[in-house]
Design a protein around this nucleic acid. Sequence first.
DNA 1: GCGCAATGATTATAGTTTGTAATGATTGTC
DNA 2: GACAATCATTACAAACTATAATCATTGCGC
Lengths: 165, 165
Amino acid sequence: MGADTSGDHMVVPGAAFLLSQVGMHSSRLWRERMGELGLDPRHVVLLRLVGAEEGRSQLALGNQMGLPPSRMVAFVDELERLGLLERRANPDDRRVRALYLTAKGRQTLEAVMKMSAEHEKELTSGLSEPQVKRLRHLLSRMVEEQGLTPGVHPGVSVLDGPKEL
Amino acid sequence: MGADTSGDHMVVPGAAFLLSQVGMHSSRLWRERMGELGLDPRHVVLLRLVGAEEGRSQLALGNQMGLPPSRMVAFVDELERLGLLERRANPDDRRVRALYLTAKGRQTLEAVMKMSAEHEKELTSGLSEPQVKRLRHLLSRMVEEQGLTPGVHPGVSVLDGPKEL
DNA sequence: GCGCAATGATTATAGTTTGTAATGATTGTC
DNA sequence: GACAATCATTACAAACTATAATCATTGCGC
C-alpha cells in the first residue's frame, strides 16, 4: 500500500493549482499582447513608472522594480532606442539621468492600457458580470490576507511554478 | 487631452491582473516548499509523471513536458543523483532508458503531496470554506472557457507577466 | 578649498540556463 | 545487409542574469 502510485491523487485540482494555472495563462496572454507592441513585460512596467512620475533617476526606478543598475541601463537603452523615453540631464546633479516619456511613449502607454483592457475582457469572457465581480472580490481578499501589496506584481524577475498536483 | 499621465489609471486592478498576481504568489510559495525537499518544480513534474506510469522512455516524458531530449538528460541525471528514480535497460529496445521510481522516490512523492496540501491550506487560509469552493468553481469555469487543459499547468518552462496595469 | 568617501551610470565579466546540432548506439525495413 | 529512423548523450553557442570594476560627479569634514 504505497498509497497513490496508481491513478490521480487529486482528481479535482485545489485552488492553489488553479490559481497558478489560470494566473500563468493570464500572464502569458498579456505578455503576448505586449509583444505585439514590441514590448517585454518589464518594458511596460518601466514605461508606466516613468509615466507616473517623470524625471526620476535610473537607480530610483531600478530599486522600485527590483533591478540592479546594470540591468536598468539595458532596459532604458532599449526603450530609448524604441523612441518611447529619453534620458535628460539633471541640472541639479549631473550624475543623474532623468527619465522622461516621449510623445510616442505616451501614445504607446495608452495602447498598453487599451490592450490590457481587451485582455481583461478576453480572459473573463466566459464569466458573467456578477461572477467577475465575485472573483475580483475573492482575489482582493487573498491579496490582503496573503500580505501581498495591492497593485504590485510579485514577479518582475521571477520564474514560476510548473505543473504540480 | 493626454489622458492619464497623472495618477492611477485603474485604481482597482482587474481580474486579469489579480489572477496573475495571486497565481504567481501561489507558484512562488509552492516552489519554495518544493525547494525544501531539494526539488525544482520540473523535478516534481517529472517525478509525478514517472510515478503515474513507470518504465517510459525519456523522450516520451520529455515530449509530455515540452522539454528537448538534451534537457531531459540533465533532469533525469539530477533526480537519479538524488536517488529518487533510476534508469533501467529496456529488454525490448536497448536504446531506451526506462525510468522507474526508487523507494525513496515514492516517499518523496508522498512528501510532495503532503506539502502541496499544506500549501493549499496556507494559501486559502484567509477564505471561508464556501468561499474557497466558490473560487474553485469560478476558476474551473475559466479553465474550461479559456481552452486550458484541466490539471495541466501551462508554464513548465515559461517566464511570466510582471507588473501591468 | 582640498581630500576622500559616497553616489549614479556604465562597462566588463563570469555564471546560469536554454535550445540546436553533432555523435554514438541500436532498431527496423527494403 | 545496407540505410534511414530513433533514443540517448555530448558538444556547443545564444540569451540572460547578477557582481564587480570603472568613471564622473557630488557632498562632507577639516
